[in-house]
């Protein structure tokens, strides 16, 4: 494929229209698989339930730990593991790997739409649907049993909503980054597991970084993974004032830009590589 076509696809504002179409089509496709959505809801329910059980067990007889109460941890489990941690974005790595192995990537690159953009749209559509039909019902059911804390303030809530968008974007960018590496490594399966391992620990998905040993905590606080679950939930719970929370959000946007730049470079190298292989 020619380089100008790629540029058009990646930067022209009109390219958003096909991306929206991809997102809608993917969401519709997901909506038709009701049993899959039900299974997803069951999975999310069990996952949140397990986390709440863990926190209830470790907090038995304790008021708080590191200044965090049990009620806050239940909220962290409810909101964090549904809106922020339930998306197994590592599957994107598998998808890219499969497209490379089967050669389908060649046909995909011929389309007048950027490949990463298309992948993002295809993930975003079903993800928004899952927010509505999986996450919200699970939160509502379990919150009615265990209780949930409201956001610290309206300002924190608005910032949290922005954080959810940033978290989804970062997770996607990290997945694309790992996925594009499979043009060189050709072992998407392994890259997928590396990503899963890093995200499981460093995003604060299961355990917030407050509870980490100091050295590991300091390291994890600075990496982009922390903006996937930990910082958004810290914002929701009002662990920092609005000004600091806004600064932290800006730092997360900075990470997104850095990752975006890395992907742009990788993507350029990748498309050249595909041309060489094809020629």
């Amino acid at each position: 494929m020619s380089a100008p076509a790629l540029k058009f696809a990646a930067f022209h504002p009109l390219a958003l229209r096909p991306l929206a179409a991809f997102a809608t089509a993917a969401a519709r496709q997901q909506a038709t698989h009701r049993s899959e959505l039900l299974a997803m809801a069951f999975g999310a329910f069990m996952d949140v339930f397990a986390r709440i059980s863990i926190w209830k067990a470790v907090y038995a007889g304790r008021e708080d730990m590191a200044g965090i109460s049990l009620a806050e941890m239940i909220t962290y489990a409810l909101v964090g593991s549904t809106f922020l941690s339930s998306w197994d974005a590592a599957l994107i790595v598998r998808e890219i790997g499969a497209a490379i192995r089967s050669g389908q990537i060649g046909a995909t690159l011929m389309r007048p739409v950027s490949f990463p953009g298309m992948l993002f749209a295809e993930q975003l559509g079903p993800r928004l649907l899952q927010f509505a039909v999986v996450c919200l019902p699970v939160i509502a059911i379990l919150a009615s049993v265990y209780g949930i804390q409201p956001p610290a303030s309206p300002g924190h809530f608005l910032l949290f909503v922005a954080h959810v968008a940033l978290s989804t974007t970062l997770l996607f960018l990290i997945a694309i980054f790992f996925g594009l590496l499979s043009f060189w490594v050709l072992e998407a399966h392994s890259l997928e597991w590396f990503m899963r391992g890093l995200t499981a620990l460093l995003s604060g998905g299961l355990v917030p970084l407050w509870f980490f040993p100091p050295a590991l905590g300091a390291f994890a606080h600075a990496l982009p993974f922390a903006w996937i679950t930990y910082y958004p939930m810290a914002c929701y719970l009002g662990r920092a004032d609005l000004f600091t929370s806004t600064l932290l959000f800006a730092a997360g946007v900075g990470w997104a830009l850095v990752l975006g730049a890395c992907i742009a470079v990788l993507w350029r190298l990748t498309t050249r590589r595909v041309t060489v292989q094809g020629g």
């Binding site: 863990i54 067990a57 470790v58 907090y59 304790r62 730990m65 590191a66 072992e187 399966h189 392994s190 890259l191 997928e192 597991w193 590396f194 899963r196 391992g197 890093l198 995200t199 499981a200 620990l201 460093l202 998905g205 299961l206 355990v207 509870f211 980490f212 040993p213 590991l216």
Partner: peptide, 28 residues
């Protein structure tokens, strides 16, 4: 490579569980 990466994936979860037990001293 598949062994190492999958081990890494699992180790991430086990490390999270270790963090909980390290901080709270026990689980149930």
């Amino acid at each position: 490579l598949a062994w190492i990466s999958q081990g890494f994936g699992y180790a991430g979860t086990f490390a999270s569980i270790w963090v909980i037990l390290n901080r709270f001293g026990g689980l149930g």
